[in-house]
Amino acid sequence: MIPTILLTSLLIFWAMDLTGGDPVQTILPENATVEQQEALRESMGLNRPFFIRYFDYMLGIVTGDMGTSYVTKLDVFDTFMHRLPMTLALGGTALLISVIISIPLGIWTALNQNTWKDTLGMVLALFGVSMPNFWLGLMLMLLFSLQLHWLPSGGSGGIQYLVLPAMTVGLGLAALITRTTRSAMLDVIRQDYITTAKAKGASHHRVIYTHALRNAMIPIVTAVGMQFSLVMTGSALAETVFSWPGIGLLIVNSISKRDTPMVTGSIILCCILMALINLLTDIIYAYCDPRIKAQYSSKG
């Protein structure tokens, strides 16, 4: 994991370095002389070789110093960390909403395969995955905020502000997980060990939950884990639509304001966050599948 993060951050740092524009221009007033610019550049260490600057920058991550924003003049790392909990709250709530909807729905459609119930569930799920989630956000805003006036159309400050953004991300995710759950359950209920369980006299409920679902969780967790970057993207879009002050909105605003240090820092920190989440997914996956757990325990 660490080498991947290092390589990734190197690439991003290099790319942003190329595009970044000249920080000196933004900091000094317009009428600054060339000597003043050069002096500032020297003192900021901008003339040093690329790799030294990169190394310095990476060290900065460990100490929590990733530069200051061009725009707000605030510390990049602090700003990111300050906004992170908002995005985590959004992502977490969205995940919760989606799991509560999708797993029962996926099981229901799998058990009623090829009936109207299956078709209904599948059509809904298909719409869900075909919808760009920022449009879903706009439509939800249109309905619940502007037409019905049940919920606010943006900002933060209480649970009611979290509902629409979380629904926006959560419904799209739910559509995806429903399809995966259905597919995984269909695979699992055809297995021989399900017949064995029934032949023991296990009740229908027990067969589905204790036997089938526990095995279906393995591909479901894998699929959700793979799609987690989608959750991050979705959160960024939802934050933009509803002005939810998380890191997604931070990055989008920084891009439009050409705030290079903020963009660079945020992207790299995002990647580290993604890597940690992937690690978490792997751990959950190992917990679900004893065959994998055995591999880890024999190594450790």
């Binding site: 021989d192 060990y193 526990r214």
Partner: peptide, 8 residues
């Protein structure tokens, strides 16, 4: 090979 539940 397939008659037993792999996660129990």
């Amino acid at each position: 090979m397939t008659a037993l539940n792999p996660v129990m």
